[in-house]
Amino acid sequence: MRIYTELFYLPNLEYFTAILDKDELFLDGTEYYQKQTFRNRSKILLANKVETLSVPVAGGNKKRKYRDIQIDYNQKWKNVHLRGIQSAYGKAPFFEYFYPYIENVYLKNHKFLFDMNMDLLTVCLKLLQLNVKVSVWEEEGQIPDSMDIRGLLHVKSGPGMYSFYQEKEYLQLFGVDFAPNLSIIDLLFCEGSSAESILRASQKK
């Protein structure tokens, strides 16, 4: 089955529960960039709070195609994100195994946000061992025989508002209360090879 969606930055668990059983994932290559969305932000769990990692972009206030949005390296965001990930997950069981794959993407210094996000998504799918073909759809309109979920995954969605995800607890490093629907790297670093089965248990029935 095909699914049609947006490309996000280190997507959350709901994103992956939506695409989990799909054969083909089509990413919207025609859309205009939208601020304050998952296109440039992701959530991780630190010792005392859930932290939002946000990638600064140049020209995000103007009406521009997502694929033309450049990352703003004048701001020292990259080191902040890498240090944040290391601080959050450095003691996680699978950190040493998976982190180099993630770090390598940042070290490429991608010019465009879309390209970096595509690289990160590809790495995460590989680490999850999900066999889904990823393509960028360059035409306007609906893809034939596909499930279109564009616009359904929102930054402000919370418990009871998720379209594809239901909370399934797993071992996290910090906090008494489980923090649901974080970036996929939270699940990967904490659970490793069990990540796929936890995603399946997290699919909203």
Rank of each mutant, 00 (worst) to 15 (best):
K111M: 13
M161S: 15
K168L: 09
L45S: 13
L107C: 15
G59C: 04
Q86I: 12
I44W: 10
L152R: 07
Y9N: 02
K63W: 13
D119K: 07
M161D: 15
G175F: 04
T30R: 15
R64D: 15
E196P: 13
F95Q: 02
K126F: 12
Q34G: 13
E103V: 02
N61D: 13
I3K: 07
A47S: 14
N109W: 02
D177L: 14
Y101Q: 15
M1D: 05
L121E: 05
I71D: 09
Q36L: 12
E103Q: 11
I184A: 03
Y32N: 11
L53M: 03
F26I: 00
L13G: 03
I3M: 03
M118V: 09
C190H: 10
V50K: 04
E139F: 13
V155Q: 05
S87D: 12
L127E: 04
Q203M: 07
Y33M: 01
G151F: 06
L130W: 08
L53G: 08
D148Q: 09
L10D: 12
Y170C: 08
S202F: 00
Y170D: 06
K168D: 12
D23H: 12
D119H: 00
R83H: 14
K76G: 14
A18L: 08
P159Y: 01
A47K: 15
F164W: 01
V176F: 14
Q75G: 11
D119P: 07
G160M: 03
I102V: 08
T37C: 11
S202W: 08
M147F: 13
D28Q: 09
K168I: 02
I3E: 02
